[in-house]
């Protein structure tokens, strides 16, 4: 009896301890996104280009009848681009914005693991002072001595942010 209760407590504790994150690799670093936001993971396939958009917007795909934009995260973070290979995947995410939720896909080098990361162990990200603004990072989690950068996808993939960045890009170039 006591044991069962103990077990239950244990599982409960585990559940309340943290959220599950899907992690993926991008230029040697491991990033995480809330797994509840992940709609599906699919291989890289042909996309239809959208004119006059920033380079990191690769285009749109047909996901069971809806048109979903695809964003290359390497280009988004101004990292060196590599040719897409067999491990390259598209993670389709649900992004919440002011006017409802959107479905978007991100291109990453490879998917990695699913981890439990407790809110307590999540650390505030220091100011990187570079491509990845700390605005887009929810926090830094640690699993088995590895650092996982947990992304705030709502902020990262919000269309208004996309637009702003594209304007900045124009100015820079």
């Amino acid at each position: 009896m006591n044991m069962i209760q103990g077990l239950e407590n244990n599982t409960l504790a585990e559940n309340s301890e943290g959220n599950q994150y899907l992690t993926f690799l991008l230029a040697g670093e491991e990033y995480g996104v809330d797994i509840l936001r992940v709609q599906e993971i699919k291989g890289w396939d042909h996309v239809t280009m959208i004119p006059n958009t920033p380079d990191y917007i690769k285009g749109v795909i047909n996901l069971r009848g809806t048109i979903v934009p695809i964003i290359d995260l390497r280009e988004r973070f101004s990292l060196e681009t590599i040719p897409y290979g067999i491990t390259t995947v598209v993670i389709v995410l649900r992004v919440n914005s002011d006017n409802g939720s959107r479905i978007m896909g991100i291109v990453v080098d490879a998917v990695s693991e699913v981890y439990n990361i407790s809110d307590d162990s999540m650390k505030q990200a220091p100011d990187f002072g570079q491509a990845i603004s700390t605005d887009f990072v929810m926090g830094l989690g640690t699993v088995d001595d590895k650092m996982i950068i947990v992304l705030d996808i709502d902020h990262l993939l919000n269309s208004s942010v996309l637009k702003k960045i594209s304007d900045q890009g124009d100015i820079n170039s």
């Binding site: 042909h46 996309v47 239809t48 959208i50 004119p51 006059n52 958009t53 285009g59 749109v60 795909i61 047909n62 009848g65 809806t66 048109i67 979903v68 934009p69 959107r102 479905i103 978007m104 269309s159 996309l162 637009k163």
Partner: peptide
Amino acid sequence: KSLETNYRKVDGVSGATILGDGTV
């Protein structure tokens, strides 16, 4: 199909459609 559902309005494009081969 609307582009705005998941993206935003694109100048010069009124929308998208899915062709017989499943591409956009």
